[in-house]
């Protein structure tokens, strides 16, 4: 595996606040790495340090094996897409995309060709002469992407690139990002707070919280085996149950079933239905489990499943297969 960039014990403090706390992280070349976490977890700060917009309080950042901790952004050769896109409003789309090439003194004819190619890659060839403010949010986002890609960056950095788009477009752009990454072979680092986005896009996902890395790995490895409760919660696990021996287990709402008799293997719970919400493809049932802790568990049930006729006030028995019960470290 070729390493494109590396964080070595990187810390960033702003006054008394530690935004990033001694993280070690390796960004593999040619892959898409996502930094995932709630706001304030240090993901954007990490990306900005990688881009050179802020200098770590301590630690080193290596790009292509070279210590670049204090290299100014203009000498890093990275492409960044900002959450607000930060397009130059006084330039046309083509001039925006050509800005970095002009600074690299690329001859005009070649520049024109590269700009046209890059705009075609993001599907905006027909808007080359427009001003950014005439474009929709999704189009502006593609211009920002094209501008960053055009300079053939060592790394493509994306700060919440899809969060300003409406839901339908966001899902469409995920596929677009995957296609563009595959076509260009670029190393991509993407910051997001959306776990679905991270799961769908990542080769490697890095879950962060309070300036630390909680877990990292391929989505197929991280998702079924969250390292601890924080990661599990962030990935959408609910129904945390502490056993008599103190072990913490969790099961996702879609893996709890309504049963008529307790099962020996797996997890079994009994309780009173509090609420049933119809959600189109399924129903979300909220249950007060009677283990004395007043715990609320939730399950989803397929609407076509006639067996689920529970109403608020009914007592029901719930169970999950052992295969779906995840035991957490803490």
């Amino acid at each position: 595996m070729t390493v494109a960039a590396e964080f070595q014990q990187v810390t960033q403090r702003f006054g008394d606040f530690t935004a990033v706390d001694a993280i070690d992280l390796t960004i593999p070349a040619g892959q898409l790495t996502t930094l995932l976490g709630p706001s304030g977890c240090g993901k954007t700060t990490s990306l900005r340090m990688l881009a050179g917009y802020s200098t770590p309080t301590s630690g080193r950042i290596l790009i292509d094996g070279v210590d670049s901790t204090r290299t100014p952004p203009e000498r890093r050769g990275l492409g960044m897409v900002f959450q607000s896109y930060a397009l130059f409003p006084h330039l046309t789309v083509a001039e925006n995309v050509g800005y970095g090439l002009k600074l690299r003194k690329m001859p005009a004819a070649e520049r024109k060709r590269v700009v046209a190619e890059t705009l075609d890659l993001v599907g905006l060839g027909h808007l080359a002469a427009s001003r950014p403010r005439k474009l929709s949010g999704g189009q502006q986002q593609r211009v920002a992407l094209a501008r960053a890609i055009a300079i053939r960056p060592k790394l493509l950095l994306l700060d919440e690139p899809l969060s300003n788009l409406d839901a339908r477009l966001r899902v469409h752009m995920r596929a677009e990002l995957r296609r563009i990454q595959a076509e260009t072979g670029l190393t991509v680092v993407l910051v997001t707070h959306d776990q679905d986005e991270a799961l769908e896009l990542s080769d490697q996902m890095v879950v962060m919280r309070e300036g630390r890395i909680l877990q990292q790995g391929a989505p197929v490895d991280v998702f079924p085996a969250p390292a601890n409760r924080l990661v599990a919660e962030f990935l959408g696990y609910e129904n945390f149950v502490t056993s008599a021996d103190g072990t913490l287990r969790t099961v996702r709402p879609e893996h709890l079933n309504v049963v008529s008799e307790p099962t020996t293997a797996g997890l079994t719970l009994e309780g009173v239905v509090v609420d049933v919400a119809f959600r189109g493809v399924d129903r979300l049932v909220t249950v007060d489990a009677d283990d004395g802790l007043g715990r609320t568990v939730r399950l989803t049930a397929d609407v076509r499943d006639g067996a689920v006729t529970a109403r608020p006030g009914d007592r029901i028995l719930l169970s999950a297969d052992q295969a779906h019960v995840v035991t957490l470290a803490g």
Partner: peptide, 13 residues
């Protein structure tokens, strides 16, 4: 947009 200068820097300015 406060990030336009940063964007220019990142592109090599």
């Amino acid at each position: 947009d406060p990030f336009v200068e940063e964007a220019a820097r990142g592109l090599g300015a």
